[in-house]
């Protein structure tokens, strides 16, 4: 991690300054709808990047994991719907929600690693879709189609965390922590083992590593990050319903990760920023109705042109820029 930070020190310092002082210049809309939202979805895509980039497992169930955390916040915390809502304190509810998300993620992973390769994407998509239909059908636990509303970011230390500026810093803090954690984990013994398993599971099994346990643990770790994102998402939206964790949303997370790039943990955040900006401003260009066509086409172009996303594109352009002109 230290090496990575030192190598790109100027870029990181510039980025840190920009992010820290962004609230000084930005309007509330930019702070939450662009800044906060990008970071929440960036974290969700980051949780996918861990699995796909380091573990070779492409999951479509990250929004489902985030949804477990989101629904937990609604069920154990305060909601305005009259269904469930145990009204536990936020400092119980939030960690509990994240822990439940990690457990759910580990379970999904435990199911998915029964098979490998392209099957993972199918199984996780099936899980995501089934969960969506389940939350929609089930009224007792998930309040069916309408879901929960009236969920609020808490107030503590004298700060109202749902106000734009505090919420922005909350998201920023969570995103930076997750990012650094992933950078650290990637170079840890566990991270290196996971990457070795991605490259050659048979050899790693022969050497004596428990391949399944490592993969499931990676799922649990990614579940923590997705869970944090899920908690922030419901605090941000104030509500959660089956639509929040629908198939469209599940695919959205994958699109963000792929557009940004799955090779480096900064990719998902770039992807999230690009997609959120598109979401916000493309409406002026193509109209709100055909936004999905636009994003689908952009996604197709990226997959065709640059399998490593925008990061890969940058990696290809950079050498040309650095070339010294011949004299």
């Amino acid at each position: 991690m230290r090496a990575e930070l030192a190598r790109h020190a100027p870029a990181y310092i510039a980025l840190a300054l920009a992010l820290l002082f962004f609230p000084a210049v930005a309007s509330d809309f930019f702070l939450t709808q662009i800044g906060g939202y990008s970071m929440i979805f960036g974290m969700m895509a980051l949780s996918l990047m861990i699995l796909a980039g380091y573990g070779g497992m492409v999951s479509l169930a990250q929004i489902t994991v985030a949804g477990v955390a989101g629904y937990s916040v609604a069920i154990f915390g305060i909601n305005a719907t009259g269904v469930m809502g145990f009204a536990w304190a936020w400092w119980v509810v939030a960690p509990l929600a994240i822990a439940l998300a990690a457990i759910a993620s580990a379970l999904i992973g435990w199911i998915a690693v029964r098979t490998d390769g392209i099957y993972t994407i199918m199984i996780t998509l099936a899980i995501a879709t089934a969960t969506y239909y389940f939350t929609q059908q089930n009224a007792e636990l998930f309040n069916g189609h309408s879901g929960f509303s009236g969920l609020r970011a808490p107030e503590f230390w004298g700060v109202v965390w749902r106000d734009p500026k505090p919420f922005y810093y909350l998201c920023l803090g969570a995103a930076v922590l997750s990012y650094l954690a992933v950078l650290y984990a990637a170079r840890s013994t566990f991270g290196l083992t996971l990457q070795a398993i991605r490259d050659n599971p048979r050899r790693m099994r022969a050497v004596g590593y428990d391949v399944t346990a490592h993969k499931v643990f990676a799922w649990a770790l990614s579940g923590i990050i997705a869970g944090i994102a899920g908690v922030l998402l419901v605090w941000f939206n104030g509500r959660i319903s089956p639509g929040t964790i629908g198939v469209g949303a599940a695919i959205n997370v994958l699109i963000i990760a792929v557009i940004g790039g799955l090779k480096h943990p900064i990719g998902p955040f770039i992807g999230a920023l690009v997609v959120v900006l598109m979401q916000t401003f493309a409406i002026d260009i193509v109209g709100a109705d055909r936004f999905n066509t636009l994003i689908g086409l952009v996604f197709l172009v990226i997959v065709f042109v640059s399998p490593d996303g925008l990061l890969g594109l940058w990696g290809r352009v950079k050498p040309h820029l650095q070339q010294q002109p011949l004299r």
Partner: peptide
């Protein structure tokens, strides 16, 4: 196969 699957996702969205 991963890119094929991703492309099919893109096609389904559009």
């Amino acid at each position: 196969d991963l890119r094929q699957t991703l492309v099919s996702i893109g096609i389904s969205i559009v």
